[in-house]
């Protein structure tokens, strides 16, 4: 996330009453430069290895959408980025990162790597949360095999890819919206660990919400 236009700068300037500086221009140029750099870096391909051992190739910028992968690469302190491409595949050691899941994740980051960074001047957190998924994301996440879907979300969470976890979360919440508790339990295979008495007590407490229908 790039906080170039931080409020602090603004306030600092207001306080000192300085004439407008060229900060804004610099920020824009810096952003442009960063964009070009991201584009260049994405041409470098790195390899990711699933828990099951499958190896998948992915653009560097795309792979860095995973905060975990980005941290691992940063820690290498490799100045010559092209060397990264020749390294051993990065192992993703969580059983949710199956071959299928990793394949889908690579597909997702490859589509999204050039998304504009979240810009507090334009994106509002509340708006973004309520924003519908794009057509592409909807098709991407509409996966018939629920086990695979849950693998992808858990793997994205493990790899710390916020955008993809969000897509998964929105998809699940959309699917259960307006359904009855029984339907949701069935759909998401949730085991009811309440005693009938406990469940009845919650129902009674929340009676008013059902009365809204």
């Amino acid at each position: 996330m790039n906080g170039e236009y931080s409020l602090d700068t603004t306030e600092g300037m207001a306080a000192s009453g300085d004439p407008p500086t060229n900060n804004a221009v610099d920020d824009y140029d810096a952003e442009e430069a960063l964009e070009r750099q991201r584009e260049e870096e994405n041409k470098i391909k790195i390899k990711l290895k699933s828990f099951e051992g499958g190896v998948y190739e992915c653009g560097l910028t795309a792979a860095k959408m995973s905060v975990m992968v980005a941290n691992m690469l940063d820690a290498l302190q490799e100045t010559d980025l092209t060397k990264i491409a020749t390294r051993e595949p990065i192992p993703l050691q969580n059983d949710a990162v199956t071959n299928k899941a990793l394949e889908k994740i690579v597909e997702w980051v490859d589509h999204h790597w050039d998304d504009p960074p979240i810009d507090p001047d334009f994106d509002d957190e509340k708006e973004r949360r309520n924003e519908e998924l794009s057509h592409w994301d909807k098709q991407f996440i509409d996966i018939a095999d629920q086990g695979e879907l849950f693998d992808i979300i858990a793997a994205a969470n493990f790899m710390d890819i916020k955008g993809l976890v969000e897509v998964g979360a929105k998809h699940i919440c959309n699917k259960i919206k307006g359904k009855s508790c029984t339907e949701v339990r069935e759909m998401l295979k949730i085991h009811n660990d309440f005693t009938p008495e406990e469940e009845a007590a919650i129902h009674k407490e929340n009676e008013w919400i059902y009365a809204k229908d």
Partner: peptide, 13 residues
């Protein structure tokens, strides 16, 4: 990502 309303509906799951 659930609405507040759905939270109350699904608390008992």
């Amino acid at each position: 990502y659930l609405s507040l309303e759905d939270c109350f509906r699904f608390e008992c799951l």
